[in-house]
């Protein structure tokens, strides 16, 4: 297996760009920093590190209608108080800083928000967070980290299965979920024999991944990455 490159040397010197704004805002900001001092210190590790529960909603005024929900995200129990309108996607992105799941359309039309709920891939944009009480949710951050990539993540790099990277977390979560579906014997639109054994052929991969749009259109490469992982897993 070729070497996986080190984490990106692409960090931006933007820390000093934090917006402090007017004095009131500044106070809010400082309180946040004080309350979650790990945030800035940990840099990008923050995204998957212990600071992940730093609830953004703590800055918003408490709302009478907010509901508590308990989610098990990437193996860690997380409690949130949320406006019931908050989608699972926005809970991850805006309240838990798990921004790996992407918002491409917010209407179930692109697949960029794909996460695994109890092992199954779904569009997290079309699901309310409060509907997931007690659910086990795996996001791209839970699959692997730059230092310890999931085999599917590594295969995407090797096969250049992405360009702009925006649909990529969704493609990868979807691919992982898809291989599970094949293993479970779930047929697809292109399965010639509904009763036969399901396989990860190129045609099957293409059909089963069609809920994940990629406008950079790395499709041909993604199929190669997924096929490699599928083969490797027997």
């Amino acid at each position: 297996m070729p070497d996986i490159p080190d984490p990106p040397k692409t960090d931006n010197p933007l820390d000093e760009m934090s917006i402090l704004g007017d004095p009131t805002t500044r106070r809010v900001f400082l309180n946040q920093v004080a309350g979650t001092s790990a945030v800035l210190a940990l840099g990008s590790n923050f995204l998957s590190g212990p600071g992940a529960q730093a609830a953004k909603s703590s800055t918003a005024p408490a709302s009478a209608e907010e509901l508590e929900v308990r989610l098990i995200i990437n193996g860690r129990e997380t409690k949130l108080r949320l406006d019931p309108r908050v989608t699972l996607l926005d809970a991850l992105r805006e309240h838990l800083q798990l921004t790996g799941s992407k918002k491409g359309c917010d209407h179930g039309q692109c697949g960029a928000c794909t996460v695994l709920v109890d092992g199954r891939r779904i569009n997290s944009c079309l699901s309310l967070a409060v509907m997931h009480e007690g659910d086990k949710i795996t996001t791209i951050e839970g699959l692997g980290t730059p230092a310890k990539l999931h085999p599917m993540q590594a295969a995407f790099i090797r096969h250049d299965g992405f360009q702009c990277g925006y649909c990529t977390p969704g493609q990868i979560c979807s691919a992982v979920g898809m291989l599970g579906e094949i293993k479970a014997g779930i047929p697809s639109h292109v399965s010639a024999d509904l009763l036969g054994k399901m396989s990860a052929s190129d045609e099957e991969i293409r059909e089963r991944m069609s809920g994940n749009l990629c406008r950079c259109a790395a499709y041909s490469n993604i199929v190669e990455a997924v096929r490699e992982v599928a083969g490797g897993n027997g």
Binding site: I4, L47, L98, I157, G165
Partner: peptide
Amino acid sequence: DRIDGPAKVTGT
């Protein structure tokens, strides 16, 4: 391989 690859495939 893209040097920004690990960041993109991990959502970071």
